[in-house]
């Protein structure tokens, strides 16, 4: 059985505050080849459903929710870490000027075997809330160690 500190599971911790800048949204769009005017054209976006530019749905994955608050799982396994998966549930759009607050918790740690050998999976759930107190995105990130 994988050795880690089980008392950490389910414990919530604050994982960052993020101010969203329009330029970051534009850079993200350029990097991924996103050209929808809703994200990149202020004038066109003003006439759209949101009354201005918003961020594309997966923009939240750029927000680095690794704070010093993160409790230590004391996982004694593996030397390399990879992204194993990601899910986002979308409630409110992210807009330039928003201040998002993130709260995270580890929900699961388990081991399995794959083509590259023994792996340990850690699932981390994060809720992003905006300055109006609205829930924006709930994400689940799967980190793999091998």
């Amino acid at each position: 059985m994988v050795d880690f500190d089980r008392s950490v599971l389910g414990k919530g911790f604050s994982s960052g505050t993020f101010t969203i800048e329009k330029e970051t949204i534009l850079e993200f769009c350029r990097a991924v080849g996103e050209t929808n005017p809703l994200y990149v054209d202020e004038e066109a976006a003003k006439k759209g459903p949101y009354g201005g530019i918003i961020a594309p749905p997966t923009f939240y994955t750029l927000l680095r929710t690794y704070s010093t608050n993160q409790p230590d799982l004391k996982l004694k396994f593996g030397t390399a870490a990879y992204d194993g998966g990601e899910s986002g549930e979308f409630f409110q759009p992210i807009r330039p000027g928003d201040t998002l607050t993130a709260t995270s918790r580890f929900t699961e740690v388990y081991e399995k075997t794959g083509r590259s050998g023994k792996l340990v999976f850690m699932v981390r759930e994060t809720t992003f809330t905006n300055q109006k107190g609205e829930k924006v995105v709930v994400s689940q990130q799967t980190l793999v160690r091998r």
Partner: peptide, 21 residues
């Protein structure tokens, strides 16, 4: 994942997309 979201929002709009895993 961003590219998949691009495909989905192009077809269905951003408002329509509720969850992507």
């Amino acid at each position: 994942m961003a590219a998949l979201a691009q495909m989905l929002t192009h077809r269905f709009s951003q408002q329509a997309l509720k969850r992507l895993e």
